[in-house]
């Protein structure tokens, strides 16, 4: 069950996206996320969807992977739908039996779902085509301007260690679950109280071993004279190429276009909240 996690997994390949500079990809991720949260209207969303499909084709990620990474979204979607059905009372009322449903509740939910799909797709493309180590280097580089305030290197080191430990801890979880199952723990069935107990029997050993591991790692790093405050050279160097610049400029143009579209579409006010917020900025 643990091996099914696809969200955030790097898929080794050699596509156009894999070869892009990780810094460029990180910036693209930011740009796309901003774009997704701007109310860009129907045309804008369709354009954005098309761009995303092109990105998927370029990165050669199988449709199956995408669908799998969207799986955790279902619960959230149902939750949002229920809330919307209760709260939203605008639009055309539809009568189904004794219940009245308003069209805007459905449309709002669909809109949020679409945005979430776009959001997860962007991050899937990013993480599937960028090695975790490259991500941290990119973060370190891009946030270098913060150096006088925070130690960016420590932050990026923490992120890379955390990423490095995800598969290890998943393995560990699997192992402990099996050991406890052999002692009669049922992780699937049982009453709430029994379930709470079975989760404790997993969480505590997991924490204990995670702490022990980090202690060992800290000692191993110190044994090799690691000093986070020292000036460090880098083994892996990133190379910014012309195609990175071109892609970045194209994306910025796209973002600018969408912002213009959003501002000119003021009248087409079909989702108030974020839009009003952005409009507030331009006043």
């Amino acid at each position: 069950m643990m091996s099914n996690v696809t969200l955030g997994k790097y898929i080794p390949n050699n596509t156009f996206f894999h070869r892009l500079d990780p810094r460029c990809k990180l910036l693209l991720l930011f740009i796309f996320m901003i774009t997704i949260f701007i109310n860009i209207g129907m045309i804008g969303y369709i354009t954005l969807g098309l761009v995303m499909i092109v990105c998927f084709i370029l990165s050669k990620i199988s449709l199956f992977t995408v669908i799998k990474s969207l799986k955790p979204m279902w619960f959230m979607m149902v939750f949002i739908l229920v809330i919307n059905l209760i709260v939203v009372k605008t639009g055309t009322p539809w009568h189904i039996g004794k219940i009245t449903i308003y069209s805007n509740a459905i449309f709002n939910t669909l809109k949020i779902a679409y945005r979430l799909v776009l959001l997860i797709s962007t991050s899937t493309i990013f993480t599937a085509t960028t090695k975790p180590l490259d991500i941290t280097i990119a973060i370190e580089d891009l946030f270098a301007f913060l150096k006088p305030i925070v130690n960016v290197h420590i932050l990026s080191m923490m992120i890379s260690i955390a990423l490095r430990f995800i598969p290890t801890i998943l393995d560990e979880t699997n192992r402990i679950m099996k050991a406890q199952a052999s002692r009669g723990v049922d992780f699937v069935h049982g009453k709430l109280k029994e379930k709470a107990k079975s989760i404790t029997s997993l969480i505590i050993p997991l924490f204990v071993s995670a702490f022990a591991r980090s202690d060992e790692l800290a000692n191993a790093m110190e044994a090799r004279s690691y000093n986070p405050y020292a000036k460090r050279s880098r083994y892996r160097k990133l190379k910014w190429r012309i195609k990175d610049s071109i892609i970045l400029i194209l994306s910025i143009i796209l973002l600018a276009g969408f912002i213009t579209l959003a501002v000119t579409h003021l009248a087409n006010n079909w989702n108030g909240f974020i839009f009003d917020w952005i409009r507030g900025w331009f006043k």
Binding site: E172, R175, A179, Q180, S182, T200
Partner: peptide, 11 residues
């Protein structure tokens, strides 16, 4: 079953 390194299952 006594797994390898069973001490990690104590809680």
């Amino acid at each position: 079953i006594v797994f390898q390194f069973p001490e990690y299952q104590l809680f």
